[in-house]
Amino acid sequence: MAPAKQKILLPAILLANDLLDGDVIFWATRGWSVDPAEATVARDEAEAAVLQTVATAALSRGEVVDAYLVDVTLRDDGLPVPNHFRERFKIAGPSIRQDLGKQAAFAHLRGRA
């Protein structure tokens, strides 16, 4: 499902789908968060390796599905925005229904994808 990437481009965040409702979630300081603004940003390979370890552990514990690292660009306000349009849609929600998905809950996502 996730694009197979050998080398992780930086900076990067870790996202996954929540086991129970499939919602897109992000690894943050205090565990998984539904808000991309809270995502932990890996800025070097060591930090990315930590995120990769978190992903592997979370998948093996079965608490999330489809966890993988996504390269991002940091907006001026610090919000990480995926570089690939697929993940921008994945985070925001359907571009045709602004009332659905995360964009409905988080103003900072609206009209961004």
Partner: peptide
């Protein structure tokens, strides 16, 4: 699956047999 007895690898073919896919958002 929810209590952790089944891994996603074990569960995925079972859910697919019942029409349950994982899409982008849900």
């Amino acid at each position: 699956r929810i209590d952790g007895s089944l891994t996603e690898d074990e569960f995925k073919p079972l859910r697919l047999k019942n029409g349950v896919y994982l899409q982008l958002h849900a």
